[in-house]
């Protein structure tokens, strides 16, 4: 009489343990949709424990690929900064975790022909401001000044 419930419990445990996935939970929220923009470069910052990608539209990428950096109206840059986290199952690599901030720089020209930059910071990491010790101008300079990371010719 007693054995039947025991078998039932054992079977239940077996079924539960078989159906439980060993797979880790994927985190699509760590992805950033850059639309049609291309990667210009990436940055690691171990002082702030962040890792970033600078994306750009066509004119921005062309400017970043040119060794003589000149900026023209229409360039748009987006720098996405993630919190660094240790890569699961591999001690020796850090990777991106949560998105902390998205900074957008747009290059425009005023009627007098002077090049100007607009800067927008969208903080998605709560109170984690990125690099509070750095001014807006320095951020613009960093974002628009990165040379394109070299890739094989397409």
């Amino acid at each position: 009489m007693l054995t039947k419930p025991i078998y039932a419990v054992l079977l239940g445990v077996l079924l539960v343990s078989c159906s439980q996935s060993k797979h880790p939970a994927l985190a699509p929220e760590y992805l950033y949709n850059a639309g049609d923009q291309k990667v210009i470069s990436s940055l690691i910052n171990n002082k702030h424990h962040t890792i970033s990608i600078i994306y750009g539209n066509g004119p921005a990428l062309r400017s970043a690929q040119d060794t003589v950096r000149t900026h023209t109206a229409g360039e748009q840059y987006v720098m996405v900064t993630w919190r660094q986290r240790p890569m699961p199952h591999w001690y020796g690599t850090n990777m991106n975790g949560k998105i902390l901030a998205v900074e957008t720089v747009t290059v425009a020209q005023d009627p007098a022909g002077k090049i100007g930059y607009s800067y927008l910071l969208k903080n998605t990491g709560g109170n984690n401001t990125i690099e509070p010790d750095v001014s807006r101008e320095q951020r613009i300079q960093l974002i628009t000044g990165q040379p394109a990371a070299v890739l094989p010719e397409n």
Binding site: Y30, L31, Y32, N33, A34, K38, V39, S42, I44, N46, I51, S52, I53, W82, Q84, M87, G92, T93, N94, M95, N96, L151, N154
Partner: peptide
């Protein structure tokens, strides 16, 4: 080079 990014890493 036209695909989306799935991760960015520092393989120290």
């Amino acid at each position: 080079q036209n695909w989306k990014i799935i991760s960015v890493t520092d393989k120290y």
